[in-house]
């Protein structure tokens, strides 16, 4: 199955910039469908990025994060070819993980 996570991590010498795009409905639980029924909440709650056995960035998200969420950050360290491990878990307990190479 194709991963829901797309990562672009680029090293520029001493820092690595990371951009992540995840496919997820991010339903807040406040929106109604065309029939007027409330769409139940379904959103990613936690997202972590790990480099060299250490968490470099972690997110706690609520239903207010946009559908197919995007996030960008940067950390010191990380060389071209290093691996970056990314994983999320949503409010229904679903998870996905992927490993990306730093470019």
């Amino acid at each position: 199955m194709a991963s829901t996570i797309r990562i672009r991590a680029t090293s520029s010498g001493d820092t690595t910039e990371v951009q992540a795009l995840i496919q997820h409905p991010m339903d807040s639980g406040f929106v109604k469908n065309a029939k007027g029924e409330t769409i139940p909440p379904h959103f990613i709650q936690q997202l972590t990025f790990e480099h060299d056995g250490k968490i470099v960035f972690a997110a706690d998200w609520g239903g207010g994060v946009s559908k197919d969420p995007y996030v960008k950050f940067a950390f010191k360290g990380g060389k071209k070819g290093d691996e970056l491990k990314v994983g999320w878990v949503d409010n229904k307990g679903a998870t996905d993980t992927t490993t990306a190479k730093i470019l």
Binding site: T15, K54, I55, V56, F57, A58, A59, D60, W61, G62, G64, V65, F73, A74, F75, K76, G77
Partner: peptide, 12 residues
């Protein structure tokens, strides 16, 4: 609250 991010040492 929309999002909360943890910034470990070494992260911008």
């Amino acid at each position: 609250l929309v999002a909360s991010y943890r910034i470990p040492a070494g992260t911008m």
